[in-house]
Nucleic acid binder design. Structure first.
Lengths: 215, 215
DNA sequence: TAATTATTGTTAAAATATTAATAATGGAGG
DNA sequence: CCTCCATTATTAATATTTTAACAATAATTA
């Protein structure tokens, strides 16, 4: 990566889309693409694509474009997808189970070591051979296993407490599905999936579209 | 709403957070808040909060601040949350079921009329009293019922086809969980929940944090 | 009821992000 | 091996977003 220059969040959030389309292209045996073709696919401007990629170094070649396989690998490295990650899921309710069941999660190199819940009816059950454990054992489990990511799928009332247990035991990355703002210490990465907010954004655009057409 | 001026997506996506914190404040019997206090809660600057709200008209009062109840109602109206919405879910797999089971969805005024799937083992089953129907009946169902929102939870291969059925039958809002870019006609709102991209963003920050501390 | 204070609404400035322009360069074709 | 072309890398211009400043004004206090 180019030294020093800070890379904006907006750039980072476009990378997965490039990565996905590059994967598609490779599947279709297309091994070369220009920024303007990639622009047609992704909807971002060609200029923006070139600028984004240049934040991390020159992956393309003048007069030729980008090698799809190479670029796919490079973006994968930037996103940290060249490594495997061990994950635990806190909360084995609807969303927790859905995540644990989601096949794509495993294909991309994430390994779910365990789920945790406080509901005695769930404890002991297995999802895809992964045991649902008692949340009281959470702290001990993290100490005894190399866990990199915690996924928080608990109700919002307990989410901060769960996050505290995770960070106190050295976990540095949290994927949060609870609709609250979790506070974490410096050096811990947190990524929120805000389903409510996403849905409300949809209702906004739906409602304002309705207004426009009625007027 | 103030006439004419286009409101940026970034503003819209901050509104749900204001809405949520205002709800919390009301629950705690706090009926007045200043932009600077709201800033502490949300993490947005006070200036930004005032600007955001002013896009829609002056809800506050100089020297006083904002009335939490009034502002909550107003933002609710802006987001279209003052109405009930009838929803169908396409794809009754992990995520489709999780959404159907999610209680908050109902509390906020969304009513799930039906789920649809092509898997004969699922067809006929019920989730929270909502029937899983044959996807072959999807088109007819929409024609015979007032459906406002479609939630797409199918694998990516079939998602575009499902969206086409929805839009051909007049649905104007789609909440998409499939990891592809769905194309919809003008006037149809689509909101994507990109779990992959969210996760990859987390791996990026996790990986780059690691690098920083190692260097 | 007048003065003071708090806080908004609004305008101006600064920062950031996006798009456009262009110079550099490798590849393809003759 | 030279020329031309395509397309990147990079710089410059533009647009957008965020932050700061301040004037207007309602609430509070004396």
């Amino acid at each position: 990566m180019k030294k020093g220059k800070r890379i904006s969040d907006a750039v980072i959030r476009r990378l997965p889309k490039y990565y996905r389309y590059l994967g598609d292209l490779i599947s279709n045996d297309i091994n070369r693409i220009s920024s303007s073709e990639l622009s047609k696919l992704t909807g971002f401007t060609a200029s923006q694509i070139r600028q984004d990629l240049n934040n991390f170094g020159g992956f393309g070649q003048q007069g030729y474009g980008y090698d799809t396989k190479r670029l796919h690998v490079e973006i994968g490295k930037i996103l940290g997808l060249d490594k495997k990650y061990k994950v635990i899921i806190i909360g084995a309710g609807n969303i927790g189970q859905a995540i644990a069941n989601y096949a794509g999660f495993y294909e991309e190199g994430f390994e779910v070591l365990a789920l945790f819940d406080k509901n005695p009816k769930l404890i002991g059950l297995k999802i895809r051979d992964i045991e649902i454990k008692d949340v009281d054992d959470l702290s001990a489990f993290i100490k005894n296993n190399e866990v990199e990511f915690g996924v928080i799928c608990t109700p919002k009332e307990t989410s901060q407490d769960m996050a505290d247990i995770l960070t106190e035991n050295g976990i540095k990355a949290i994927w949060n599905f609870a609709p609250i703002d979790i506070k974490v210490p410096e050096g811990v990465s947190i990524e929120d999936v805000r389903l409510n907010e996403s849905l409300y954004t949809l209702t906004y655009y739906y409602a304002s579209n309705r207004e426009d057409t009625e007027e």
